[in-house]
């Protein structure tokens, strides 16, 4: 009985400790960014890895989501005889919700897991310590470029996802089901306001920082957790953890941002 209580206590404490470390890392990154030397090339390389190489995945998933939305909204709206709302429905749900969330989840799966694995392996093979020995701040050299690249890449990927998904909805609605082109496009333009675009932008910026930060912290502070002593198995453990945690963080903060900003 006492043992169980103790377990609950341990879980709570480790949870708090990890959350604290993650946000501490954010402060460290901001502090490191303000100090010279500025390394732009490392950021470019990370934008290439997180952003440019995710582009094909984002385009494919965007078209698919747009087409699925077009299909589903069409069959629902047809029952009420208001097919002319198809454009508005697809555009609003993509720009406000699905675009930022789906993009963030895709980036978590593609780039987030790789970030955690990379940093975790660098930590257990003592490459991070080697950097410190050479007086190179690992926060600045390893973590900061990834967080900044997330901040820049995820909003851009979201914008690509949104426009491609609108095209997917257009394809299903107008080309396949023969909804009037004017009512699809104008319904979309009338329904979407700057507030909706801004909400999507705010979400994608926050998601971009959040997922890269969680994934970096998981790998970077691997030696402070139980997994640190387990070698390669530990890396797989923290990678799984990072993906699960950042996905949950994305979904939960999506709700929070939606509740605050609307």
């Amino acid at each position: 009985m006492l043992k169980k209580l103790e377990n609950i206590g341990t879980y709570t404490l480790t949870g708090l400790e990890q959350t604290g470390r993650t946000f501490n890392l954010l402060l460290l990154v901001l502090w490191e960014l303000a100090r010279p030397p500025y390394r732009f090339y490392t950021i470019v390389r990370q934008i290439y890895f997180i952003g440019a190489r995710s582009l094909s995945l984002i385009v494919i998933s965007g078209v698919t989501i747009g087409m699925v939305l077009g299909l589903q909204f069409y069959s629902i709206l047809e029952r009420f005889g208001s097919v002319n709302l198809l454009g508005a429905g697809v555009a609003l749900s993509v720009i406000r919700e699905l675009g930022p969330v789906m993009t963030a989840l895709m980036v978590v799966g593609r780039a987030g897991s790789a970030i955690t694995a990379e940093l975790g392996i660098m930590r257990i093979t003592e490459q991070v310590d080697a950097l410190e020995c050479m007086a190179i701040s690992p926060n600045k050299y390893l973590v900061a470029p990834k967080v900044i690249a997330g901040l820049i890449s995820v909003p851009l990927l979201t914008a690509v996802f949104d426009s491609v998904a609108l095209f997917g909805g257009y394809f299903v609605g107008v080309v396949m089901f023969g909804v009037a082109e004017g009512s699809y496009m104008n319904g979309m333009i009338d329904a979407v306001e700057w507030e909706d675009v801004r909400l999507g932008l705010v979400k994608s910026v926050i998601f971009g920082v959040l997922i890269t930060l969680i994934c970096c912290a998981k790998g970077f502070y691997m030696h402070l957790t139980k997994a640190g002593s387990q070698g390669a198995e530990g890396v797989s453990f923290v990678t799984t953890d990072a993906v699960v945690l950042s996905s949950i963080a994305v979904l939960f903060s999506d709700f929070l941002i939606g509740a605050i900003f609307s």
């Binding site: 952003g51 720009i95 851009l156 306001e193």
Partner: peptide
């Protein structure tokens, strides 16, 4: 190569955002 591809990615992203904001969002 990396710089070129990153540049292309950023331009595509900015173009997509401008399209969403100006044409659809009516800014």
């Amino acid at each position: 190569n990396i710089e070129l591809l990153t540049g292309i990615f950023v331009m595509i992203g900015i173009a997509a955002f401008t399209y969403i904001a100006v044409s659809i969002g009516g800014v």
